[in-house]
Amino acid sequence: MQMPAAPTETKVSIEGLQKFFRTGHTKVIALDNVNLAIPDGQFVCIVGPSGCGKTTLLRILAGLETPSDGRITVVQGDKNKPVNSMIFQEQSVFPWMTVKDNIAYGLSMRGLDSKGKDEKVDYYVKKVGLSKFAKAYPHQLSGGMKQRVSVARAFANDPEILLMDEPFAALDEQNKILLQEELLRIWEETRKTVIFITHSIDEAIVLGDRVIVMTAHPGTIKADVKVEFARPRGVYELRAQPEFGKLAYEIWGLLRDEVLKAKREEGAE
């Protein structure tokens, strides 16, 4: 397999992004002057204290919120592909659809013919190890299996960029590691641009090519840390490397002040 050319072409650019919410007469700034350029094929993880607006940022990228100011550009390589697909936090899998119908959702909404659709869906059903459960309803699945459905649904939709909003936050530690491995394995095949929100420094380093640290409220970018482990990566082996600990220490150093600041503000309110 030929690797795509050196990832220099910018896929996503965020310029001067601002988002505020109005509650009564007070204006609450959630995001302030966020600037970010993401090359094609990069896996970017965003960490920040809770309430820093990282989920808001992702929701704006997903088209679920509108920015108050600034510009977002996603370079669209193929006009037939959807711009983005999101892997949501837990419980986003439709309980009234079977596993297969859930995974096919994006394709069905785009009106793909059933032949092309079935092929793609079957591929990802198998990929996430749910072949035996293709006709099952989500309530028959464990939490980890439901999240696999959510992952498969986004990948099957074959978007330009993938957005992930703490998709594994609700899982237990063991399941989390398994799903991180699977996510990387599936991602290696396509190397799509990914923006991954997490509150876990570990997860950010294990998955990302780059970790963006956000400040406490109002959210803006504090630091941009490169993660230069070779791919394909072993989620578990990586943790044994001394570089891993150093990076985690560095990122925590950047994040710590912000977490404390967020905590102080919480207490002040």
Partner: peptide
């Protein structure tokens, strides 16, 4: 749950869908 409507919107569901 609001998240289901978000999923619909994100995956390009039309008004009818």
């Amino acid at each position: 749950e609001k998240i289901y409507l978000d999923v619909g919107k994100n995956f390009g569901a039309s008004r009818k869908n």
